[in-house]
Design a protein around this nucleic acid. Structure first.
Lengths: 354, 354
DNA sequence: TTGAAAGCGATACCAG
DNA sequence: CTGGTATCGCTTTCAA
């Protein structure tokens, strides 16, 4: 049986409080006694106060929980998510706080709820979850501080926001396409429809999309297109089930292999946009001349492949989220941080072919 | 004040045990009573049993701790580490277990020790730590299951191993260079020396290196070179303080800007090797013709840039580590997993110039 | 099926 | 400086 505080106390012939103090408040006892206690502990193989018991008593755990979208492991395949995580890790490291990645499983919502309910943490950080996900309600029920990159109508005032103006960002990208004369446009996005298939999303309105990020970005494009007289009903939307390059290419095939093909394709993420570029090249089409392509995120690969895209600060977003969670400002007004984005025009957009 | 089990019990007029059972052992009470309890809980805003208290009582936390090298956030800049993490996350997700990333700070060993001592976890996974790091001793003292990718003389039998035969891997790479006729060779590696500077490591022997991974890889090269009659004392070793491309380029400069320059450079990671390629190109030298370059890891970028390297399975390593930690085999013999590696010869190695 | 009592391992307060 | 006592919130026998 593993030694406890009591074991050590008995061995030294002092009370539990004294042993506890030896670890947590060294100024409360003489150096001599403290050394004796520590020596006895070492001799007994006592590694210090049990973290769980300590957390219970102190009402803080020294860790924050992280909810990624869908599956946990998936987050590591997305460069943007990794950047976000890096920033968050920096903030956590700075505050000497652990980062608990919750095991959210795609197929099993109940398991995700359980993960939230069982997380030994002092607060939560939400990256990208569908609005309807029950884990979000479980989150709210726990009553811990939350920082999120998405807004839900049901969010309480305890929830802080760190993110960008998604719609304004795509509005700028859409205006760019419109200015270039594009009128036959399409949008490819992840999680546009519930079905986990690659294909037309058949969206009557952006409001139907369950993910905040995708929904807002669509709204931005919608308003840009509308301002140029392009009605949403003429815009083809294609769903991809995951945020990956291959899916982007496959989705693009739905748009390119029919006549008339769109002159511009807006992807809601860079990864998907890069897939679109692959599809264009496979057909001998030149991005920016035959078909214009816009991405979103500005991941490192985007610059390397000269993709026109919307830049948003990945690591910053994570870092600010962590900071806001760890030392939460008293003033609720300070609990909203909107980071800047900017349209980066590179080689994959150009005038609409006539 | 937040409601507890007791609050709910009082409201329903039952005992705490009953409320506890309503959550944890639904078969122990009538459906009718259970529903009443749950309804009362909902009304009171009780979100279910407190995870910390529950962990204390049940003596399990539902999370595993992860120790990366040096700084936590740093891990996310290394593609190989991200791959490892993805595999580990898959295993954790599968077992419905959280993944606690410990806040290891570079400058502050004491903080790292504290992080280990305060981690509310059921076991630990070690990625890449220097042998002397006190956090490893703290780890051992906690007596929890450990899976590590590195061996230390002081590791107890409770420690499992999932990794590769590092020395055999570089032995193959070294043999390849020797077979090509290279005799003036250099090695660039991270953490070869204690000093956080880019420059000659002045290593008398690989045994002096504090990191298992780098040390073993050096040994492999040493034995390959020795077998071809190249004495270790003629091999230049250069240290880089972090695993990044720019540092690789700077380190390469130390080798290329002097005469005679080496005909082959072995880097202990792909990231560093890619930096070496940058340095070669900046000098108008052609990799594989003027200077041969070998990496290690086989990250995606390595294939893209045609780097000769040693392939090791990143995600597999993480996944197996997680699995071994989560359902630990009874037989100690099964607690050692050595995964295969293979030399991938691409375009950056060629015959030594005469 | 339900409840009373005994911890899990530690910390906080306050009196000595 | 040191120790007694109450408590953190829950689970788990075991008896009713």
């Amino acid at each position: 049986m593993r030694p406890t505080l009591q074991t050590v106390a008995d061995a030294v012939g002092v009370s539990r409080s004294t042993v506890s103090n030896a670890y947590s408040r060294p100024d409360q006892l003489s150096t001599e006694l403290r050394d004796r206690v520590l020596a006895a502990a070492a001799a007994l193989g006592y590694a210090g106060p049990d973290p769980t018991a300590r957390s219970l008593r102190k009402r803080r755990t020294g860790a924050i929980g992280m909810l990624f979208t869908a599956s946990l492991s998936f987050a590591f395949t997305d460069p943007y998510a990794v950047g976000y995580l890096r920033g968050l890790a920096e903030a956590a490291e700075q505050a000497r706080t652990g980062l608990l990645l919750l095991p959210l499983s795609v197929e099993d919502d109940a398991a995700a709820v359980a993960a939230v309910n069982e997380a030994v943490v002092d607060g939560f950080c939400v990256y990208c979850m569908p609005d309807w996900h029950p884990a979000l309600d479980a989150l709210a029920a726990r009553g811990l501080p939350v920082v999120s990159g998405q807004r839900r109508a049901s969010d309480g005032p305890q929830s802080a926001f760190v993110g960008i103006d998604e719609a304004a960002a795509t509005r700028a990208a859409g205006d760019h396409l419109m200015a270039l004369g594009h009128r036959r446009v399409a949008v490819i996005g992840d999680y546009l429809s519930v079905a986990p298939t690659i294909g037309p999303a058949l969206l009557t309105s952006p409001a139907d999309v369950a993910y905040y990020t995708s929904r807002e970005r669509l709204r931005g494009y919608q308003s840009a297109f509308a301002a140029a007289g392009v009605d949403w009903s003429t815009v083809t939307t294609v769903n991809v089930p995951g945020n990956c390059r291959d899916d982007g290419a496959t989705a693009a095939a739905h748009l390119l292999d029919r006549a008339p093909r769109p002159t511009a394709i807006a992807a809601l993420s860079d990864i998907v946009a890069l897939g679109v570029l692959d599809a264009l090249r496979a057909r001998g089409l030149q991005p920016g001349r035959d078909v214009s392509v816009v991405g979103f995120d500005d991941i490192p690969e985007a610059a390397a492949e000269n993709l026109t895209t919307v830049h948003q600060p990945a690591a910053d977003r994570g870092r600010r989220s962590g900071e806001l969670l760890l030392d939460r400002p008293a003033d609720p007004a300070d609990r909203t941080v909107v980071l800047p984005t900017r349209l980066v025009v590179r080689a994959t957009t150009g005038p609409a072919p006539s």
